[in-house]
């Protein structure tokens, strides 16, 4: 099977904790969806409750530019 393509990957490196579950976030699989388009990514995710964290740099950087591009499709 071909390696799965992820559009973005961040590893929380143990610096982030889920407040509700009291466990560290780990690198997990997530998906961005916008205007009927989906992109697989790897983001910090809580292994228990599934909280997916989108850091500020990502939201204002890559995410914003992809949003703009899709909006003008």
């Amino acid at each position: 099977m071909a390696a799965e393509k992820n559009y973005y990957t961040i590893d929380p490196q143990g610096k982030l904790q889920c407040v509700k579950c009291g466990v560290p976030l780990i690198k997990g699989k997530a998906k961005f969806m916008y205007l009927d388009n989906g992109f697989p990514v790897e983001l910090p995710v809580c292994p228990q409750c599934g909280f997916v964290y989108v850091p500020e740099e990502l939201a204002l950087g890559k995410v914003l530019s992809v949003e703009r591009a899709l909006e003008d499709k």
Partner: peptide
């Protein structure tokens, strides 16, 4: 201290 937003939806993916 800080606030930001994005329009994309983000969900956990299984598998």
């Amino acid at each position: 201290h800080r606030a930001y937003s994005h329009r994309m939806q983000v969900v956990k993916r299984e598998g």
